[in-house]
Write a protein that binds this DNA or RNA. Structure first.
Lengths: 335, 335
DNA sequence: TCGCCTTTTGGCAGCGCTGCCAATCCGGTT
DNA sequence: AACCGGATTGGCAGCGCTGCCAAAAGGCGA
């Protein structure tokens, strides 16, 4: 820190070696605690590192190291606006930070072409692994992922074939379980209220599972209200107001997720619609607020953090290629 | 793609050069569209790149390039559980992705020592910039950031001195404005309900501003309920129940943020406490759900996305060192 | 004290790329 | 036909580090 340094030039390993009076390899060995070195060498290097304020250059390290892959993982998520993905990252970073591996993230905005571009960009950093969301990708994305020489983990969705490892749960099964719950509770005139399905394919899978299970019970969705744009309480509220105005005899609404359901609940409160007496509400995700509502929301809790953790675990140990973490139906008081 | 490749060895720029029948420098020029090259060279390179499935190695590129800094930015945030930070990342990635610059993120869990470790780890990737949250850091963090040779941007908080650039708003001013609003509306017996202040220093600054402004009006906070752990609707609900049980004459509650306030609102709904007639509620952040509530939450909207965007802008152009993006008080219907 | 084996050490090539420079090419001039 | 300036090109050093290897140092019994 207190040495003269030509401006613009950062301290290098060679500088440390010179300052410590040892060879470069020794410094490298000490810093990585790899190979053998004497106590004396260790101390001198540590001292020089502290004195010079040396920060290793991992660009060089990764390039030189065997495999030439960086201790980084690339993550592509479709959005940061939906709590699900930050939660996923939370589980992921918790597990990876412990191993000192940072995440390089890209946000695709639910656009497969953007996803492909991001995958290419991330692969250029030679990450140790690539974490994607969902199972549906451009052919180009798949090709890149396969030839990239990295481990690939696809998160959240298990309804389909993955490139390599898959960690998540079945969205179809969630939809089906939700439908069976509503049917068992005696609801018959059921509507669906969701955000843009063409964009959020997993919400579409849940709806498909939901409709299939309703069908098995001889029922069908009475009305579908699909709101453009991302899910949000505001969208859910507006959507439920539309449904209430248009259909007077609904007895339950299945929402694409808890955010939408919260908005629906607000709409019911505002309009004086009794929940679940007059209208039952069922969500998806099991977000934190669901349990704090005056009437706990009936929903399905998804293992979001655990998916992130397991995905991280896939990178280190030899994990099974396919991990279905399941989900938990929360009965709540709204359906 | 269809060529023979020794397993484990990825296609390099040299391979592309050979396949295209040009020199390495030409390939490099074409790929970066930098310097001049003939149309013919461009086409042959593009063809070879496509045929071999070449993905550039930015590790090597950044190492060789001048300044040896990577087209990456390092971001350290305290948490992913609070919507604020994903929102920040959202603004950031939106602006950076456009420039093809990915973020490497670290989550400090509000722990200054972890933050320091993360800064050191991120600097070792030689990012073009380092984005931190808040102004309070370990001395070691500051030292690293200053000698790291990177641009440093501290986000969210403008109440204090920054290392280099600062983008955010004044949390003290937010607290003061909130207090003045409550006072102007005639509330006198005001409580504070928050999550752990020792950990979330910005919430502490808001409270300080709030109390200072109350003091100017000759008032004081009647009760403080500080909940351990992070903010959440569940914590807000439990906290408000405690306050209601303990103090019968409160007329308003200032929450550390909207999540807590939502929980408080739920507590009021559940207990049949009229809002704002019997108890006024005031939040912070202006989250999406606040406007969708049956009674829109009175709160302060913070420019979270814009902070991210401006922080990204700080990296490219020559921006002012200090950007105060202000905030907006939303009157709502709960206070 | 010597020789043998183990531990510790330093030198140096090379990871894949970029920047620099000199060589080459091309078209139009004289 | 020789010449000139700009556009285009290839060779090669070197970015900072690691892996390999051979050399040096140290330990120990004979």
């Amino acid at each position: 820190m207190d040495e003269f340094q030509p401006p613009g030039r950062l301290v290098t390993l060679t500088d440390v070696a010179r300052a410590a009076g040892v060879g470069e390899s020794t410094v490298s060995r000490v810093l990585r605690n790899h190979g053998s070195y004497s106590k004396r060498a260790g101390e001198r290097v540590a001292e020089a590192v502290a004195r010079l304020g040396y920060v290793p250059n991992r660009l060089a390290g990764s390039l030189a190291g065997q495999g030439a892959s960086a201790r980084l993982v690339g993550v592509v998520i479709p959005s940061l606006a939906n709590v699900v993905f930050p939660d996923l990252l939370r589980g992921l970073t918790a597990a990876l930070d412990a191993a000192g591996i940072p995440c390089v993230i890209g946000v695709s905005d639910y656009d497969p072409d953007r996803e492909e571009a991001l995958v290419a960009a991330l692969l250029s950093w030679r990450p140790a692994a690539l974490l994607l969301t969902g199972l549906e990708h451009n052919p180009g994305t798949v090709a890149l992922a396969k030839t990239g020489g990295v481990r690939v983990v696809e998160m959240i969705d298990t309804d389909g074939e993955g490139i390599d490892a898959v960690v998540g749960f079945s969205n179809r099964a969630v939809g089906a379980a939700s439908a069976r719950h509503l049917v068992a509770r005696g609801y018959r005139r059921i509507a669906y209220l969701g955000h843009d399905l063409a964009v959020d394919l997993r919400a579409g899978k849940r709806l498909a599972g939901f409709e299939a299970a309703l069908g098995e019970a001889g029922l069908a969705v009475q009305a579908k209200e699909i709101r453009p744009g991302p899910s949000s309480p505001a969208s859910g509220r507006a959507g439920l107001e539309v449904l209430l105005a248009r259909y007077s005899d609904l007895d339950a609404v299945y929402f694409s997720n808890d955010d939408m359901a919260l908005g629906g609940y607000f709409a019911c409160l505002a309009a004086g619609v009794a929940v679940p007496g007059r209208l039952a509400l069922f969500g998806f995700n099991g977000l934190d607020f669901a349990a704090a509502m005056p009437q706990p929301l009936s929903t399905v809790r998804t293992p979001r953090l655990e998916i992130g953790r397991q995905a991280a675990a896939c990178l280190t140990g030899e994990s099974p290629k396919r991990i279905d973490l399941g989900f938990e139906l929360i009965e709540g008081a709204t359906a």
